[in-house]
Design a binder for these strands. Structure first.
Lengths: 192, 192
DNA sequence: CGGCGTCTTAGTCATTCGTCTAAGTCATCT
DNA sequence: AGATGACTTAGACGAATGACTAAGACGCCG
């Protein structure tokens, strides 16, 4: 029943290597360019393992999505769960948003683009979105009340999520015009 | 030198059919699923024509992007160039944004996703973005002044563009939570 | 220490891909 | 009417793909 520790480690390592490679390839060539063999080559494992471990190319990407979204939610929770004042959390989040490195965002949006054409993935994504939304709604509840904003909390959360998503998409397209101005203004407004 | 009118028409018709098929396939299967043969089949033409007319599969998608973005900009200009009061233009734009049919948006974002992995396409897209931005900046200049908004015009335009883009991406992922609330609030705020 | 079950490898298989070409078609012009 | 030249078609080509498998390697357990 119990697997040998070494073999278990080796298998886990190979699986991780493949999932890591999937993320790397999503960044480098996009989901359209991911093939079994390229995946295996990037992970440094035999290409037959993709089928043996994951059943299929597509399944591997599903697993990659699961792993990635778990981390995504964890990161969000961690960010907004700290004891810092809200404005500091916001600033941290925005620093991530316009960081030079778009690796994380590229993986995330390539997976979304993949889901646009895959009903199963789409359902999974909407679950993640609901979680993300819940985290933000909780984080924004206090400042929303304190600042006496007229916009309903629901609408505010949607505004934040969508404009963040839009910024990411624009950045992936090589567009950054106006982003700094927008974030600066929000920051100034929050500070006052 | 001059081509025969009939032949010219036939060729133009076939090219158009292929470009139309490309858009249809972008909606139905995404850019990753577009192949020479499928394209030709969907357009009802011989698959060799893709090479004969466009040189390559990729070139055809570039042409599809050009045609689509031309229409996109034209639509934007038309919308914001009318004599209606600003609030009516806004409402029309928002009605498009949350219309049931996401065909237009799907084509647009599939092309963007394609561009994420293609330097040439990315440059073309940033040009389109700049045009769009200019149209919006002009349209928002008056209401921005009249309403005495504190947010700089640049930042406002970015906010509008990015939140629109985010709404589109969420909708393509099957997510609509909060959109109606957000748009309703904006509408109410504009009306007051 | 030898059998045993799991992991790993190399390789096969049919299919599909993009590209390209040779042969055929057809409207036009002399 | 026949030649011309652009357009269209069917098909061939090698390369690459995802799926799958048989055989070997490896480490554990009795």
């Amino acid at each position: 029943m119990t697997k040998t520790p070494h073999a278990k480690d080796a298998r886990a390592a190979s699986e991780t290597a493949l999932l890591d490679a999937a993320e790397r390839l999503l960044v480098d060539v996009g989901h359209a360019g991911i093939t079994t063999r390229r995946l295996a080559e990037a992970a440094g494992v035999n290409h037959g393992l993709v089928h043996y471990y994951f059943g299929s190319n597509e399944n591997l990407l599903v697993r990659a999505l699961e792993r990635f979204t778990d981390r995504l939610i964890a990161r969000q929770r961690e960010l907004y769960a700290s004891d810092e004042p809200f404005v500091e959390k916001w600033r941290t989040a925005m620093r991530f948003l316009v960081a030079e490195d778009v690796t994380y965002e590229k993986v995330w949006l390539e997976l979304q683009a993949l889901a646009w054409n895959d009903e199963g993935l789409r359902e999974r994504l909407s679950g993640v979105n609901a979680e993300w939304r819940a985290v933000l709604a909780e984080a924004f509840a206090e400042p929303h009340r304190k600042l006496g904003l007229q916009i309903p909390l629901d609408a505010l959360v949607s505004l934040v999520i969508t404009f963040n998503l839009g910024v990411i998409v624009e950045r992936l397209g090589g567009i950054e015009t106006g982003h700094a101005e927008l974030l600066d203004w929000i920051d100034g407004w929050l500070s006052s």
